[in-house]
Amino acid sequence: MQRRAFVGTTLAALALPLPALSHRLRYGLTSVVWNARTDVLEITHRLHVHDVLRALVEHYDLRNPDLTDVRTLAQATLYTSKRFALIGEGIGRLTDVGAELAGEFVLVFQEAAVVSLPDRVRVRARMLMELFPEQQNQVNLHVNGVSRTVVFGQEDLERGVELGSSLG
């Protein structure tokens, strides 16, 4: 059976494009840091506040979301965590910790217990992709003094990251 070009897909949101901004580019930054003291992978997502507000309007049908409100921050946490995954042998399930407003940005926190550090992890970071065609999400993994970076654009679904011997 021949299928149409947009076969078998659903769309997450009714997305109205924002202006072609020359000066605020669609860019999310996630850091994954292994805290050796606690044996926890600490995940911090940094997203621009206006982009998060837009996502909340679209996904939670909010008229005017207020990111000083704990419920709205929790919604921002869930919105983000649904679009981020980090999977590796010995790494526990990601737990949502919460979110906070930090200047122009919203920081969303997740964490995962580490039983043993794997050589390789799989990462997915699709935050805001459904809203902004030009959105890029960068994920930095910092383990044992070594940094690995993966960048997600519209075409990138899931990426494998070799951490190898850096994990010790």
Partner: peptide, 21 residues
């Protein structure tokens, strides 16, 4: 221009915004 990808699933997508454009 490349096709968009759905942010929650792993499928290609065609967004309202792209359709509007």
């Amino acid at each position: 221009e490349a096709a968009q990808q759905n942010s929650e699933t792993e499928d290609s997508t065609y967004s309202f915004s792209r359709m509007r454009r």
